[in-house]
Design a protein around this nucleic acid. Structure first.
Length: 453
RNA sequence: GUGGUCGUAGCUCAGCAGGUUAGAGCGUCAGAUUGUGGCUCUGAAGGUCGCCGGUUCGAAUCCGGUCUUCCACCCCA
């Protein structure tokens, strides 16, 4: 026996039945993106490591898959480096490329590189796999697909509104109930300033983000560990557990901030977005959540996060506004806002809520039984006609036992089977069997297509 | 990356205070039924018990390592 076949940790094969569901998700998302006027692009699976490193924080750098250089890279290295045993220094010297970690940073690179060919504001979408060297868990894979929509080169909050509409539209079409959570990074900045801890913004946001998971006491404990003063924590407490409607929460919060400053600006922006959304028919719940922080530290304005209302699996869509993402690639002052749908998690949610329409898995509508050379030739002519008129059909390739051919049709859920044997060949007829009811009738061959309409 | 957990037939799982030929259900294949699938009945095939090493007269069973799965932390889609 040869070795057991397997795929790398955290990666998966997809069977035809799984692909049916996955394609349904991708098609739905793509249709919505098209409908809202976004255009598709693609970028390579691998990027130069210099484009990727330092964009996702220290943690993100660790999760990058690096690609070993080709050729005799070791021979060129100084002895000192080789013998030092420091694998991270070594890795930087022998790896120039890495697999993309998300689609946003490659997009920023793309925009700067091709800016002369783009019309701004540029609205693009991108549906491709990304890779993270994370330890796999439920709903967490090392290879997964992101479906990104971004608009770059516009400060307008109308873009935020459009993205919220896209989120709602996609999940309504997929039949997934969700909660759309919104916040604004400036609100968080304002809060940190108000309690006199601007410098601890990251620690505060990371802690606050865990509210749902570890509770208020847990959040306070974590902040204390990160060196935030007890007085500051006491000030913060009532803010993060604030209740009421979106506008009530916003008003309460706005009153605490100075007239000028990031806090006020954040609440103003948030109010504008929510006011516009309230004029529209958004089917899913939209919630302003001060405790929503999100890790990626390039967000500067609105933050989005979408969670399934039925399944506990983390966020299935997320994103936000970044004022200067292209700055690191040499182009200042381009503001962008975008979101990313996690197709793999959406699939997991839909599997758990039993949510794929059965039509999604249907493929062939009619199978011709193969009784031998002459009979098959007659089928071939009919088959050609059917396919040309858009009816998906196939001819069983081998002239084997009828039982075997019927079983094939049955296993593949093919709804109709057509038989042209000795008798039918002589009469110019075909016997059509409905696999669901088991009923069958013999009809002239010309009538076959019409019977299947 | 830290801590834990799982791995026996294609699938779901039993077996295990270490002891002859490792079991079941489902699936597969063959036949009952040589132009009729699903239902029924009969029979068969299929396992170096994840992999490597150790303890032992003897290991699926105990120990160590490794890979994989799932979980918590970290972080995230």
């Amino acid at each position: 026996m040869s070795q057991k076949p397997s795929v790398p940790k955290g990666t998966r094969d997809f069977l035809p039945v799984e692909m049916a569901g996955r394609n349904h998700i991708f098609d739905t998302i793509r249709n919505v993106f098209d409908l809202y006027g976004y255009v598709p692009i693609e970028t390579p699976a691998m990027e130069n490591l210099s484009s990727l490193l330092g964009k996702y924080g220290e943690e993100g750098d660790k999760l990058l898959f690096r690609i070993l250089n080709s050729g005799d890279f070791m021979g060129k290295l100084p002895e000192k480096t080789k013998s030092s045993g420091n694998s991270s220094i070594l890795a930087n010297m022998i790896c120039d490329r890495g697999l993309r970690y998300d689609l946003t940073v490659p997009f920023a690179r793309f925009v700067v590189q091709h800016r002369s060919k783009l019309t701004f504001p540029f609205k693009r979408y991108q549906i491709q796999p990304v890779w993270r060297a994370d330890r796999p868990q439920k709903g967490r894979y090392r290879e997964f697909h992101q479906c990104d929509v971004d608009v770059i080169g516009s400060d307008s909050l109308l873009n935020e509104v459009e993205l919220a509409r896209i989120i709602d539209d996609v999940f309504v079409r997929l039949g997934v109930k969700v909660v759309i959570k919104l916040n604004n990074r400036k609100v968080l900045t304002g809060i940190a300033g108000m309690i006199g801890q601007q410098d601890k913004l990251t620690a505060i946001t990371v802690a606050i983000d865990k509210l749902e998971k570890i509770g208020l006491d847990g959040v306070c404990l974590e902040m204390a560990e990160k060196g935030i003063s007890p007085e500051a924590i006491d000030k913060l407490k009532p803010l993060i557990v604030m209740t009421g409607s979106n506008s009530e929460k916003l008003e309460k919060l706005a009153a605490l901030f100075d007239i000028e400053g990031p806090g006020r600006e954040g609440t103003r922006e948030m109010k504008e977005v929510l006011d516009m959304l309230s004029l529209l028919e958004i089917k899913n719940r939209v919630e302003f959540d001060v405790a929503l922080a999100r890790g990626l530290n390039y967000y500067t304005g609105t933050i989005f996060e979408v969670k399934s209302a039925d399944v506990e699996i983390g966020s299935i869509c997320g994103g936000g506004r970044y004022d200067d993402l292209t700055g690191v690639f040499g182009q200042e002052g381009l503001s962008g806002v975008g979101i990313s749908f996690g197709a793999d998690r959406i699939y997991d949610v839909m599997m758990q809520t039993g949510g794929f329409p059965s039509a999604v898995s249907a493929s062939t509508r009619l199978m011709f039984v193969n009784f031998g050379k002459k009979e098959a030739a007659a089928c071939l002519l009919l088959l050609e006609k059917l396919c040309k008129s858009g009816i998906s059909a196939e001819l069983y390739p081998d002239s084997v036992k009828l039982k075997k051919q019927m079983q094939y049709a049955n296993n593949l859920n093919i709804p109709f089977v057509a038989m042209i044997g000795e008798q039918e060949l002589k009469d110019g007829t075909v016997t059509l069997k409905d696999m669901k009811t088991g009923a069958q009738q013999t009809i002239p061959q010309e009538e076959l297509a019409a019977k299947l309409e």
